[in-house]
Write a protein that binds this DNA or RNA. Structure first.
Length: 277
DNA sequence: CAATATACCTGGATGC
DNA sequence: TGCATCCAGGTATATT
């Protein structure tokens, strides 16, 4: 589910519910996620504390407590995070539950358990966040996400441009769906070696990345907003995908059938007629 | 160092 | 209906 737009939509939903609330109790499942759930830190740093705000860095949500401690959550492939009524029956694969002082719960559900829950101690949070942020790539809506920076980043890399867009240490927030969509919009063939793209192509990548991610955020992301219960959105939103999942369907620009291939192990869709290397 | 393969999980779709 | 197989929006780690 979650690439940058879905994580951002989740954040905005949580922002309507969490700031000012106090966490009255915390509980967790017996399973480990990508890493073990930090029980002790949840008890010591999160339980009893007031939530100040919720930020996002890359595909991670940062729930900031008034104390300075930070609860970090990554949704992995199947993670869902939402504020719901306490009497709602537990779902299979619920892994973290924060009881709030207004009778609602924040619940994290993740069937595949590729998600992550971390806690940064109040006293160490600033240092933890700095170290963490250094390992994450450019924010697509950040000031340094420019054609010049991307062009420089690509200079010594022959990696296919699609794989580069998805390398989270270099560029944050773009997963398989949006990488496909961005390259279709920019008319760039996904296999093009990154170092062969001229500055003009990177200018297009910057422009289309921002346009598509923003459009997806505005549309409520692709799936999860129904779970938030915050914004009053019913169901979930269907994103208008131009290539992803459209194998053999006509290209929306030229009518040629969309081709599906595998690139770096991921399903890759492109129009052979209007995306060039 | 750069690029790819693999591993971590469950569940839904597909095909026999 | 049952069962095997494949595939899925992510990313850390191992391997070439």
């Amino acid at each position: 589910m979650p690439e940058l737009p879905e994580v951002e939509v989740t954040r905005r939903g949580l922002l309507e519910q969490l700031p000012g609330r106090t966490v009255t109790a915390v509980s967790w499942s017996a399973h480990r996620l990508r890493s073990a759930i930090p029980h002790q830190l949840l008890r010591e740093e999160i339980a009893g504390q007031q939530i100040r705000t919720v930020d996002r860095r890359a595909k991670y949500l940062l729930v900031r407590m008034a104390s300075g401690a930070v609860l970090v959550i990554h949704l992995g492939m199947t993670g869902k995070l939402g504020v719901i009524e306490r009497q709602t029956a537990p779902h299979k694969h619920d892994h973290l539950l924060l009881e709030l002082d207004n009778g609602l719960d924040l619940r994290f559900n993740d069937s595949r358990r590729f998600g992550v829950v971390l806690v940064w101690l109040a006293e160490k949070a600033a240092q933890c966040e700095e170290n963490f942020s250094l390992k994450e790539g450019l924010e697509p809506f950040g000031d340094d996400f420019t054609a010049k920076t991307l062009h420089a980043l690509a200079q010594h890399r022959r990696i296919p441009v699609k794989a580069l867009l998805m390398t989270s240490r270099l560029i944050a927030g773009i997963g398989n769906i949006y990488a496909n969509e961005i390259l279709f919009a920019a008319r760039i063939h996904p296999l093009t070696p990154a170092n062969q793209l001229p500055p003009a192509a990177w200018r297009l990548v910057v422009k289309e990345t921002r346009r598509i991610l923003q459009q997806a955020i505005d549309a409520g992301g692709s799936t999860i907003s129904d779970f938030l219960g915050a914004s009053g959105h019913p169901g979930y939103f269907q994103l208008q995908l131009a290539v992803y999942g459209r194998k053999d369907s006509p290209c929306l620009r030229c009518g040629q059938p969309i081709v599906k291939t595998t690139l770096a192990g991921r399903a890759t869709f492109h129009c052979p007629a209007c995306q060039h290397g």
